[in-house]
Structure formats: structure tokens, C-alpha cells
């Protein structure tokens, strides 16, 4: 294809991506260097026979005019990055000096909002992903063993948790584990503890979110593994069988190595998707016990009256850096493959 016709064919999609994906990343980076204007204050002195008193009022008109003139706010450099809500270098130094052991240090570190959100996001990502891989493969093998007529309906039902809107799917689960819901009430009966609530303790909330994450991502890995199982060469399996390999051995030594590229593919997609975990926290109303990076950006943006663009921008940039670190191994590998092909 000539450069000219390539250009015209790719123009619409490329301009859409540049305008609404690449440019916002730049815009976020710029925003993060600015901070909201301070309110314009008027100090008035009112004197009474008993003395003079100074009162301070906010000049709303002047404040509005100022933010209209410079909508970005005032320049703050990297100040937002280092403040308490983000990387909090000052606070970390203080905690480091004051804490007597490592456990205490981490305990206090997690009180800082950014590190708390980062801790949940990473835990969620790195717990959900392996579970999804292993359980997905197990279901795929099971479905593969089913008689043919059951396969279609099984796949239909299996797809539901993934296809359904994340916010909606999480809500259906949330209502069931509610203290008055079917699972919540049953758990109270089993443990004979009327105060047991999945929403009240941090470990339970984390567990609930992670279980939801596995539930909603399993269908994806199941379908991919199931399709992969159809391509396992029959000859190799039979050869292994003749050599006396048990079903389990055939699984571990023939099938799993054959599916290895799919494991890489699923992990990549899962890492990307789980790192942006957001909707379940809204549905489960879990923000008191678990926040994610996406959630703290959202929270800054919906701050009533004046959205904290600077703060949201700084967290966004840090999140993007996190995504880049996650993707680095894949990008390096692709780059190497590409160079090998080119030479």
C-alpha cells in the first residue's frame, strides 16, 4: 500500500486516538503542575465603640473572575506530586524516623491515601489474575469433557458474568451479600453472629471485591482456554497416552505447554483491566475500606463545587506510569521480536 493511500485510510482512526487519547495524557500532565486558585479574600475592619474587629470574607466575584481568566489555576510545579495526598515524601520521611519497626512503618504508610489505594490496586491485580488463569483452565477442561449438547448452554451461562455491565453485575452480588440479603443473612446464621457484615471489616471487603473480580473475569480466560484446547494436536495426546501418561500427566506435560502463549495473552489483558479496577468499589460502596487509583481520581473529579483537577492530574500521571511499568516486559519482548524479524 502506498504511503499516500495508507495516510487517508488511517486518518480518521488515528486522529480520533491522537485527539482523545494521546492529547488528554498531555493535558493531564500539564494539569498536574497547576493547583486551584486560592479564594480571593477581603478583610474588612468594623469598628464599634468597644474596639475594632477584622472579618474576612470570600470575594466570590473576584474568585470566579480569576478562575475564568486562568482556568488551570496557579502554577505549582511538582508540589502536588509530593503533597500528602500523593507521594507524600515529607510524611514518609517522618514516619520512617518515628516508627520503631518495619511493620509499624508499613502500617502508617498505608494511612496515606495514595499508598492505600496503590496497595489495594496491586493486591487486586495480582490476586485476581492468577486465580482467573487457574480456574479458567479448570473450567475449560471440564467443559471440554462434557457431552456435546451441554456445551452450548454451558458457554451461554458462563459468558454472563463477563458480558454484564460491571456496575450492574457488582450490584447484584452486593445486594446478595447485604446483611439482609440471601448470602449475608445465611452467613450470619452459619457463624451465629448477628453482627457479621461483609461491608464492615476491611479484610472482608477486600475479599469480597477480589471474589467479584474473579467471578467477572473468569469467563474471558475460560473461553480463550477452551478455544485453545480445541487446537491441541490429537496425535501428541495419543502418543503420550500410549507411552503410559496418566490424564493428569498429559494435562501438565502436553496440554499446558501448548496453551502457554494463551497464558501470556490472558495475563496481559487481565493485568491491564484489573489495574483500572473502579466500578466494583462504587457498587459495593466500599470506599471506606478499599480505594483504587482510579477511584481516587474519580473522587477528586466529583469533589462538590470545585473539582480538584491538579490532584486528579497528578494521580493520573502516576497511574499511567504504573501502567507503563506493567506493560514494560511485553513491550520489550515485542520490540525484540520485531528487531529479530527485521534483520
Amino acid at each position: 500500500m502506498t504511503h499516500r493511500s495508507f495516510f487517508w485510510f488511517i486518518l480518521p482512526t488515528l486522529s480520533a486516538m491522537l485527539l482523545f487519547i494521546a492529547l488528554p495524557i498531555v493535558s493531564v500532565a500539564i494539569q498536574s503542575l497547576f493547583i486551584e486558585h486560592e479564594q480571593v479574600l477581603i478583610v474588612t475592619e468594623s469598628c464599634t465603640p468597644f474596639g475594632c474587629e477584622e472579618t474576612t470574607t470570600v470575594d466570590t466575584e473576584a474568585s470566579a473572575a480569576l478562575s475564568k481568566e486562568q482556568p488551570l489555576g496557579r502554577f505549582n510545579g511538582l508540589g502536588t506530586y509530593t503533597n500528602r495526598s500523593h507521594l507524600a515524601f515529607g510524611e514518609i520521611g517522618e514516619i520512617w524516623n518515628n516508627s520503631s519497626n518495619v511493620g509499624e512503618f508499613f502500617g502508617e504508610l498505608l494511612d496515606l491515601p495514595f499508598y492505600w489505594a496503590l496497595a489495594f490496586t496491586l493486591t487486586y491485580t495480582f490476586v485476581v489474575t492468577p486465580f482467573v488463569l487457574v480456574l479458567g483452565l479448570a473450567i475449560a477442561v471440564g467443559v471440554n469433557n462434557l457431552p456435546k449438547i451441554f456445551k452450548g448452554p454451558t458457554i451461554f451461562v458462563s459468558l454472563l458474568p463477563m458480558i454484564v455491565t460491571p456496575l450492574v453485575g457488582a450490584l447484584t452480588i452486593f445486594w446478595m451479600v447485604d446483611v439482609d440479603g440471601v448470602i449475608g443473612a445465611t452467613l450470619q446464621n452459619i457463624f451465629n453472629d448477628p453482627s457479621l457484615s461483609m461491608k464492615a471489616s476491611t479484610p472482608l471487603v477486600w475479599a469480597m471485591l477480589i471474589v467479584y473480580g474473579i467471578w467477572s473475569s473468569l469467563p474471558f480466560s475460560f473461553i480463550v482456554f477452551y478455544a485453545g484446547l480445541q487446537t491441541v494436536p490429537k496425535d501428541t495426546i495419543e502418543a503420550a497416552q500410549i507411552d503410559g501418561a496418566s490424564k493428569w500427566q498429559r494435562m501438565v506435560h502436553v496440554v499446558v505447554p501448548h496453551l502457554m502463549p494463551l497464558v501470556v495473552f490472558i495475563s496481559l489483558i487481565q493485568l491491564m483491566d484489573n489495574f483500572r479496577v473502579f466500578e466494583p468499589i462504587i457498587s459495593f460502596q466500599a470506599e471506606a475500606h478499599a480505594t483504587s487509583l482510579s477511584w481516587i481520581i474519580f473522587n477528586d473529579l466529583i469533589a462538590a463545587g470545585n473539582p480538584l483537577y491538579g490532584s486528579a492530574g497528578a494521580t493520573s500521571v502516576l497511574t499511567i506510569i504504573g501502567v507503563a511499568i506493567l506493560l514494560m516486559p511485553v513491550l520489550i519482548r515485542t520490540w525484540r521480536d520485531f528487531n529479530r524479524k527485521a534483520h
Binding site: 483500572r276 473529579l301 473539582p307 497511574t319 506493567l326
Partner: peptide
């Protein structure tokens, strides 16, 4: 068959990984 086609696909992969809320915080203002 040119190299830039490969690079556009790679860029698309990186864009695919961007959490949507980070993009949204760039749009709002």
C-alpha cells in the same frame, strides 16, 4: 508492510491499557 504500521499497532496497545478515568480527567477542563 511498512514499519510505521507496526508502531501504530503498538501505540494502540498502550492506549488500550490506559485507565479510562485518567483520560476523563484530561477531558473535563
Amino acid at each position: 508492510g511498512y514499519k510505521y504500521a507496526f508502531w501504530i499497532l503498538m501505540a494502540a496497545l498502550v492506549f488500550r491499557a490506559m485507565p479510562h478515568i485518567t483520560l476523563v480527567s484530561g477531558y473535563l477542563l
